[in-house]
Amino acid sequence: MNFQITKDPIDMNEMMDKVTSRNAGAVTLFVGTVRELTKNKKTLYLIYEAYEAMAVKKLAQIGDEIQLKWPETKVAITHRVGKLEITDVAVVIAVSTPHRNDAYEANRYAIERIKEIVPIWKKEHWEDGQEWVGNQLETVAYPSGKPEESDL
């Protein structure tokens, strides 16, 4: 189970163990956490929601894409859902590769892809309101109703 959605806190050691390999010379762990301030707005907490069945498939797809780009890589991704407080861990991406540069690059690739194709949403709760966050920069629209080939 290298690709998971969970309601529970994510165990970092378990994530590390999932990608441990005798061929690996490097492991990168990306840990996404809940930030308090965004553009001077104070977040109280977040609610993450996922379309779990599809999200797990899309996380696995990201793993497959990484295998093609960086052979001999092991990948594990877990994203948490539910109510998360400031400093809580929302996502952990573990990547192991024979050489360190690939471990950094593949890990970066994974988080960027999560923000494009994995059906997970967060709702910000501020002191003075709440809102579902779309694409953070409002830079991506889907006029055809789905991501373009280049996005997938």
Binding site: K57, K115, Q136
Partner: peptide, 25 residues
């Protein structure tokens, strides 16, 4: 559970999900 375009014709028993711009991570 797979992205589909606007012209896709729905079949009996299909599961359709509307996916607003995502904000995971």
């Amino acid at each position: 559970e797979e992205f589909a375009d606007e012209e896709t014709v729905l079949q009996e028993g299909d599961h359709v999900a509307f996916i607003p711009p995502v904000s995971g991570g």
